[in-house]
Structure formats: C-alpha cells, structure tokens
C-alpha cells in the first residue's frame, strides 16, 4: 500500500502544472525513500526528473515499490479541484488500478476524494551520471522566466555564456537581436534577488528557447533556478522545492 500526505498540497499542483505541457504521460515511482518521476518529452529532446523525499511529506508509507502510470492532463484536471490551501493525500493499493486523491480544506470542513485510473506506460529510464559542471549559475527564477520569455519574441534559440562574473543570454532572429546580461550579485539583504556564479571554466552553449520557456513554468515552485552547464552536454535547469525535493529539467544543446 502507498499512502502519502502533503500538507502543502499546492506544491503538487504546481509540479503538475510545470510539466504537463512537456510530458503527456509518465510513471510515478514510489519507494521507501520517496516519490519520483523521470520522463522525456515526446521528441526526446528534454528529460524531466522529479523527486519528492519521503521526509518532505507529513505522512509517508510505501510497503512495496510501485510505479503508477498517469496521463498528466488527467492528473492536472483532478488536482485543479484541490484548493490552494488544501492538504493532499494520495493513496493506492499495491495492485490497484486507481490512485485516490483526498483533498482536505484547512479547517477540515470540506473533504473530497477523486479516483484517477492508472495506465500502463512503457518508459525508458535513463541513468544520469553525477557530473562536475563547467559553470553553475543561480538566478532568481522570475528573472530567468522573464529572460527566456523576452528572448523568445526575438529568436528561437539562446546562447547562454558564463564567465566568472556574469551570465549572458543572447539571441537573434528576423527582426533583430538581443542580449541580456546578469551580473553576479550576492545580495545579503534580499537573498531572493541574488545571482551567484560558480565557475570552473567559461562556457557557452545554445539551446532551444521553446523548451526553456516550458521549464520556466516551474517558477512558482522556487525563488531561484540553478543552471548547470558543461561544454557539449545537456543543461540542467533545476528548481529546488524547499524542504521537499527538486524538479530538474535536462535539455540537449543545439
């Protein structure tokens, strides 16, 4: 039996909203250590990896490892019925063909239950090696969202180049070109506005803006986003979910 209660149910709503346009369906894997998902978009250009640690849940029980296949659009429909302040409990029997979502309002006056049919999904799991990156950049997530949105109105791809004190985002298209530079700024007064660069080697890589804009839908999950870059390797766009886990996106370079 699997049972997990998340006091901040809004987190689960935000996670699903962040990935539902990128991934059609996916297996949610549950074991003793937590709740996770790994899936590629339909063109196999990007990979999503979600992990929510067991200790991030108020209550977590998983007797056997289970894999629950869900269509993200359907999961989203159900989670939209949960209030933003509701606690969400997920429940499934070991060989069950449904998962139950229970929503509880803060004062427990309203309790609702929704059952979602599970489906069999063939998915390939990829092993992601632990890597040392040439550059790691931490920027406010809202800033990153704005940059990739603004640049997408000019071009289709962005070159991200990192030097020791700045990260530059550049694009060009039919109407012209643009570049946005963010300087390192370790703001102690407003840590949520800080930009931090940790560099071993200057690096410049080009990526499709369409995917970065899709990843930026995870902005409500975290005040910062971490970009990890190495020459000729996929970029990692990582949102740390405070006290619970992480949502990471991997995008192959152009």
């Amino acid at each position: 039996m699997f049972e997990a209660r998340l006091a901040q149910g809004a987190l689960l709503k935000k996670v699903v909203e962040a990935i539902k346009d990128l991934i059609e369906d996916a297996n949610f894997d549950c074991n003793n250590s937590g709740f996770s998902l790994q899936a590629m978009d339909s063109s196999h250009v990007s990979l999503v990896a979600l992990s929510l640690r067991a200790d991030g849940f108020e209550h977590y029980r998983c007797d056997r490892n289970i894999s629950m296949g869900m269509k993200l659009a359907n999961l989203s429909k159900i989670l939209k019925c949960a209030g933003n302040d509701d606690a969400i409990t997920m429940k499934s029997e070991d060989n069950g063909d449904t998962i139950t979502f229970m929503f509880e309002s803060p004062n427990q006056e309203r309790l609702s239950e929704f059952d979602l049919k599970l489906m069999d999904i063939d998915s390939e799991h990829l092993g992601i090696p632990e890597a040392e990156y040439d550059a790691t950049v931490k920027v406010p997530s809202s800033e990153f969202q704005r940059i990739v949105k603004d640049l997408a109105s000019i071009g289709d791809t962005v070159e991200i180049s990192v030097t020791k004190d700045a990260v530059k985002f550049s694009t060009s298209g039919d109407i012209g070109s643009a570049n946005i530079m963010c300087r390192q700024n370790k703001s102690v007064d407003k840590p949520e506005e800080s930009t931090e660069i940790d560099i071993n080697e200057p690096v410049a890589l080009t990526f499709a803006l369409r995917y970065l804009n899709s990843f930026a839908k995870a902005t409500p999950l975290s005040p910062h986003v971490v970009l990890k870059l190495s020459k000729d390797l996929p970029v990692v766009v990582e949102y740390h979910i405070p006290d619970v886990g992480r949502l990471g996106f991997y995008l192959a370079p152009k």
């Binding site: 590629m40 063109s43 196999h44 250009v45 990007s46 990979l47 390939e124 799991h125 990829l126 092993g127 992601i128 090696p129 289709d156 499709a208 390797l233 996929p234 991997y250 995008l251 192959a252 370079p253 152009k254």
Partner: peptide
C-alpha cells in the same frame, strides 16, 4: 528542428 540533438545520446539506458 535543425541541429537539435536528442537527450538520449547523453545518458545511458538503465
């Protein structure tokens, strides 16, 4: 899209 690599070439299949 032209020049777009697949993510599968970078990670090993489990």
């Amino acid at each position: 899209a032209a020049g777009q690599k697949s993510i599968m070439g970078f990670f090993t299949k489990k």
